[in-house]
Design a protein around this nucleic acid. Structure first.
Lengths: 175, 175
DNA sequence: CACAAGTGCTTGCGCACGCAACTGTTATCC
DNA sequence: GGATAACAGTTGCGTGCGCAAGCACTTGTG
């Protein structure tokens, strides 16, 4: 959104280099036209597929277990961690939240008894989040729901061979 | 997040069907283990790739043009629409926002002069959003930035043949 | 050992968004 | 034609999140 510094178009002028010959105002009139059908389809398909699946699965999880994706990912990460404990810092990455966001998330989960917070033994600055039995039970149930959704909305639509290729291809996208 | 109805685990009991033999508490101890490497890799790769690319490109757009993705998609949809005008209702889908969210978005964009709002002629209930010249200029500049990002972070990592296959595959994911 | 620099987490603040309720308009159905 | 339903858009409210500043503790350096 246009904010303080440059509220409006920081452009030189409508058209000041090439003469305006009536056609597209400049070279980038609609850059998207320069994409092939495959390029455009792949990119927009990627966005659209993600958006649709994301909201559907999240609503599903919310309806069935009153859990947001952030909640679920946090519980899942803890459930898998040795002793069900993880320091805030290490929890932030799998949950894909900033530390401040994570503080709030953990606070909410603690408030309803799904996890507990204890000061870290060997480093008094740190805090450890530990999943409770209730948390474990809930994340197991939620996993069943979620995994079913993932299969239905994603995995089932591809053959094993396709999935192997996709895994490699998505791997290329992550630095 | 656990909300009013069932703040905590709505489960029958820790283990009430199979005897707890010390091993996994029940059949779904960690359902994710049941996924093949390809399945797991494809799904998590999908999520991870989207998350990474999304934040990188959005930051890029924000830094270069003070535009969020929502802002950009709204302007882009309008720029492509006949006469640069679209009713709120028709703008909501491409921007992937609810109507209330769109109301606020359009309000912000209007405030900085990127679009204008006028009552709809043939339907007194409706409102039309129209992109201004400044909006057009900005969306062109932003498109150049964004498209470069899309190429760099996505398109370039695949061959034309792969992109064609991906387009078809993502199409399968969208109902 | 003191003092700076770095690290881990929290807090103040602002913001974009969804949901549900509301207003005003148009279509539908006796 | 008047009641009712459907629809378009806006508003009140709550919430989750990021950013930047702050506090507490630890580590490095002279």
């Amino acid at each position: 959104m246009a904010t303080p510094p440059t509220p409006l178009s920081p452009l030189p002028a409508p058209a000041d280099l090439a003469a305006d010959d009536g056609a597209p105002v400049c070279g980038n009139a609609d850059d998207w036209e320069s994409l092939s059908a495959a390029e455009s389809g792949a990119w927009h398909g990627f966005l659209q597929a993600h958006a649709e699946i994301q909201v559907e699965l999240e609503h599903e999880l919310q309806a069935a277990h009153q859990l947001s994706f952030s909640d679920y990912f946090a519980l899942l990460a803890l459930e898998r961690a040795p002793a069900g404990r993880l320091r805030m810092h290490d929890l932030a990455k799998p949950v894909r939240l900033t530390r401040s966001g994570l503080t709030r998330l953990v606070e909410r989960l603690e408030r309803v008894g799904l996890i507990e917070r204890t000061p870290c033994e060997d480093d008094a600055r740190g805090t450890e989040a530990r999943i409770t039995e209730q948390g474990r039970a809930l994340v197991h149930a939620a996993s069943a729901t979620h995994l079913a959704g993932v299969r239905r909305r994603f995995l089932e639509r591809f053959s094993p061979a396709e999935l192997a290729v996709l895994a490699e291809q998505f791997g290329r996208l992550t630095a």
